[in-house]
């Protein structure tokens, strides 16, 4: 166990935990975009920045990556931290002006767009945090999506910008996306889900008849776990 101070509160934490973990466990709010408990932290969005140390040696670090240590002094809401978060958020707002999620988060944090940062006109809501790519790779285990190109053209896509034949249509990428960039549509009757430019036939629950998951996803789960398809054809509420 290590003893540390976050926002003048003395806190005990286990070694190896990150500042973000400990802060959240103790009810201290730190905003994040690219963080997801199911994945290793990556520190790409910089929203979770906090200040550590005191006086002239104080420095700003990403709390999602920084491990706690004995005697560590953390300030999660200092002027310096607020300045960092404000600039980061303003740059992200200029990158993805159409993202409702970002706009909501900015409002919660009391941050207004900076007129100096010209809003991007490409209509993309992606902040290139890579959360979706990492989810598809490590949680789903499919790796159907990745980044392509670099610099201003960098974007998240399926290989060759074509509909992927290995994608299982699970929608995990759309679900973890912090800015609402990945679009997933469901047909009015619910029998077809469209994501990454491909239509997925949805399976209907064998008990209640409700469409609940793409057939490709169930086949994939069945193949990975060995659970027979008949058992998987029951939706979570009927199980």
């Amino acid at each position: 166990m290590v003893n540390l101070t976050i926002d003048n509160r003395k806190i005990q934490a286990e070694e190896g935990q990150t500042i973000l973990d400990v802060a959240r466990k103790n009810g201290i709010t730190i905003p994040t975009l690219c963080h997801n408990d199911a994945l290793e932290p990556s520190g790409s969005c910089r929203m979770c920045s906090v200040e550590i140390g005191e006086g002239a040696r104080a420095k700003v670090v990403t709390s999602c990556l920084y491990p706690v240590a004995e005697g560590l002094v953390v300030n999660s809401g200092s002027e310096r931290v607020k300045n960092v978060r404000r600039t980061v958020m303003q740059l992200l707002l200029a990158r993805s002006p159409e993202s409702e999620q970002l706009a909501r988060m900015a409002e919660d944090l009391g941050i207004h767009p900076e007129p100096r940062f010209k809003p991007s006109e490409d209509g993309s809501k992606c902040i290139l945090c890579r959360l979706c790519v990492r989810t598809c790779e490590t949680v789903v285990g499919v790796s159907a999506i990745g980044f392509s190109f670099r610099g201003p053209e960098k974007n998240v896509c399926t290989p060759f910008h074509e509909s992927s034949n290995i994608c299982i249509g699970c929608g995990a990428c759309a679900s973890v996306c912090p800015t609402g960039h990945i679009e997933m549509h469901v047909s009015p009757s619910g029998d077809v889900r469209t994501i990454w430019g491909r239509d997925f036939k949805m399976a209907a629950c064998s008990k209640c008849g409700l469409y609940f998951a793409p057939e490709d996803q169930l086949t994939y789960i069945s193949g990975r776990t060995g659970v027979p398809m008949e058992e998987l054809m029951v939706c979570s509420s009927c199980r």
């Binding site: 790519v133 598809c136 790796s143 159907a144 999506i145 990745g146 980044f147 392509s148 190109f149 670099r150 399926t158 290989p159 060759f160 992927s164």
Partner: peptide
């Protein structure tokens, strides 16, 4: 997806 990422990068 990863090979394409490297090739375009």
């Amino acid at each position: 997806s990863r090979v394409y990422e490297v090739a375009t990068f």
